[in-house]
Design a protein around this nucleic acid. Structure first.
Length: 592
RNA sequence: GGACCUGUAGCAUAAUUGGAUAGUGCACCUGACUACGGAUCAGGAGGUUGGGGGUUCGAGUCCCUUCAGGUUCACCA
């Protein structure tokens, strides 16, 4: 039984004895005592006044006296207004450490194979390279998957590649027209970058056409629809859906360039997938579902042949599901994808890691599924995260205002190299090891920087200010880990005592209290899909350890029992830092 | 215009889900290495939680109102 339960149970029986009322334990508000107050746990007694018929302060006093008297793990208490602060016996913390120090699965729940969860993330378009927004998506998806695994879920990580649609045709068309048979090899360029350039080129030429049409006296809105280039792209999409051999060959070729490019980026980022799906494989199923829906009368057809879902009863508009020319739209694909995923995995939850700009889309998706009679529509969960904003505003690929993923990681690497050369202890490192370390440190800075922010929040990134390596950062945590490991290397042979101290110092206790909270934090992070909770936890743990480290000697302690205890505490802290950082997809180096 | 989201110190972010004097990091100022690794630690300064009202023992958190920003409402994805 954990400490919180022990306290609430003790309080429950105390209240019954004192006031004759049996309260449910979840009606007893328990929280950790603020750092600036004396005590470990606090019972908030304002709500008990009705039962005790006394002022909150008196109630707290009585309750505190009773608990101190009758519970040996509560050694003292302190009352401030309606707050009853309890002081817990050191024994509890000492034995907690002893019991868990060798538990490498501390806080984790064993995986239950039946508790299946699908996490979809990344989901790039194959017409442009990955940028900072994708980085947030990838890191979140990967980390949330790890967190769910640690909470016992059987997680399948899925990448749904958006490989078809008019936008893909645009870059294909541009390459066909002006590409001059250029390949990534000839251009000496990553495939995704090359294709992205043609997407931008299309947009440029398209805008030129519009300008010309407007010059000739056409209205801008009409010109945007009538521009020959757009018509050509639409033709191409039609040919693609008709399985035209030439179009498909070009499509396959250009997409394979992009995939080769993405693979490099994913590898550098350290994310991976259990399965890669392609929308080109699901849109037909989507079409089928739409036709079924039409037959069953839950959808309707307009005069021009387009098919719609009426969501006015849900307080929304009509939603297009198939165009008049019979080609599918984004929603069509997603219907198919959802069905396929539901059938394939039999998952209890299907989590989509997608930006909050698509909140409406997922709302509609679930409602359409409901209309189609898919009673599992509620298994879909949209993990909606905020946009990454630059000082200049939103990133737009077509306008070139993006922070490229590869370039950003490259810059971080250089910074890590400079910093490590200046401060690191890397004598004896081979070139290979150095390279690994720079990569490790730079990725930790980047990943931590992004994951420490609550996913729901929009976050700010200023490319001209490089990401920090001091303070609340990944490298700071890595440094603490490396320093502990250094101590442990020196301590390994001297560690002989098997006895434990009877009391501990305030600083030691503080570290243990943080460690003690880890399982609860992990659980909460799993419920809220929030890596930020984990990163905040690690930072607080590390700070408390550093305070302890700075003030209390470990290896120079004469008392063997105390020394041994402090080594164990350091060992457990290091292990926990390592495991918690892995939940964020970050590795910690033994030396740096 | 309708719908949804977000406003916390110069910047970036927390707040145990309604609890105590709103924490923390960067940047700024002061101090600590003949030390187990100073990428550290100790201290200082910096706040009307966008504004106004309400609910109650108690509000950054809930309700109303107002201001500012963002997203979305496509035969784009």
């Amino acid at each position: 039984m954990n400490l919180e339960n022990r306290i609430t149970l003790a309080a429950q029986s105390a209240i019954e004895k004192l006031y004759g009322t049996l309260l449910d334990t979840n009606k007893i508000p328990l929280q950790q005592t603020r750092k600036d107050q004396k005590g470990d746990y606090t019972i908030v007694v304002f709500g008990f006044s009705g039962i005790s018929k006394k002022k909150p302060e008196e109630t707290a006093q009585e309750l505190g006296s009773y608990l101190k008297e009758n519970e040996d793990f509560i050694t003292d208490f302190d009352v401030i207004k309606g707050f009853l602060n309890l002081i817990i016996s050191d024994d509890i913390y000492i034995s907690f450490l002893i019991e868990n120090v060798n538990n490498t699965d501390f806080g984790r729940t064993p995986i239950n194979p039946d508790d299946k969860v699908v996490v979809e993330y990344s989901s790039p378009n194959t017409n442009k390279p990955l940028h900072l927004g994708h980085i947030r998506n990838n890191l979140l998806g990967f980390s949330v998957s790890e967190i769910l695994k640690a909470n016992g879920k059987n997680v399948k990580k899925v990448n749904l590649v958006n490989d078809r649609g008019i936008h893909i045709c645009k870059s294909m068309l541009a390459w066909q027209k002006w590409g001059d048979s250029l390949t990534p090899e000839i251009a000496n360029l990553k495939g995704d970058k090359l294709v992205g350039n043609f997407y931008v080129l299309f947009d440029k030429k398209y805008k030129e056409e519009i300008a010309e049409l407007v010059n000739q006296g056409m209205e801008k809105a009409i010109a945007e629809k009538e521009a020959p280039l757009l018509k050509e792209a639409q033709q191409m999409l039609l040919k693609w859906e008709e399985n035209d051999a030439e179009t498909r060959t070009l499509w396959n070729k250009m997409n394979s360039w992009v995939y080769a490019g993405f693979d490099i980026t994913y590898k550098n980022m350290g994310v991976d997938f259990d399965k890669i799906c392609y929308e080109s494989e699901t849109y037909l199923l989507g079409k089928k579902l739409v036709m079924e829906g039409l037959k069953n009368g839950v959808l309707f057809k307009k005069e021009n042949g387009s098919i719609w879902c009426d969501l006015s009863e849900d307080g929304l508009d009509e939603k297009l599901l198939l165009r008049a020319d019979g080609t599918s739209v984004y929603m069509t694909q997603d219907l198919g994808t959802a069905q396929l995923r539901h059938d394939d995995f039999e998952a209890k939850k299907m989590i989509y890691v997608v930006g909050n700009e698509q909140n409406y889309h997922f709302d509609v998706l679930k409602r359409v599924l409901k209309h189609l009679g898919k009673n599992w529509y509620n298994d879909i969960e949209h993990l909606s995260y905020g946009m990454v904003e630059l000082p200049a505003g939103k990133m737009k690929s077509r306008e070139g205002t993006v922070v490229d993923a590869d370039e950003l990681m490259e810059e971080m690497y250089s910074t890590a190299k400079v910093t490590t050369e200046e401060l690191g202890k890397t004598e004896n490192f081979s070139n290979n090891e150095l390279n690994q370390l720079y990569r490790n440190v730079s990725l930790s800075a980047l990943k931590y920087f992004i994951l420490k922010v609550d996913p729901k929040r929009q976050m700010m990134f200023n490319p001209s200010e490089s990401i920090d390596f001091n303070g609340n950062t990944g490298p700071f945590i890595q440094y603490t880990y490396a320093r502990i490991k250094s101590i442990l290397r020196k301590a390994s042979e001297k560690n002989i005592s098997t006895n434990w101290p009877e009391t501990i110092d305030e600083k030691e206790k503080n570290v243990i209290q943080h460690l003690y909270n880890f399982p609860a934090i992990l659980k909460q992070a799993g419920e809220q899909y929030s890596p930020a909770l984990i990163s905040n936890y690690i930072f607080d743990l590390v700070k408390s350890y550093n305070k302890f480290y700075q003030e209390i000697s470990i290896l120079k302690e004469d008392d063997e029992i105390k020394k041994n205890f402090r080594i164990k505490l350091s060992q457990f802290t290091a292990e926990n830092i390592k495991n918690a950082m892995l939940l964020l997809g970050i590795n910690v180096p033994e030396r740096m």
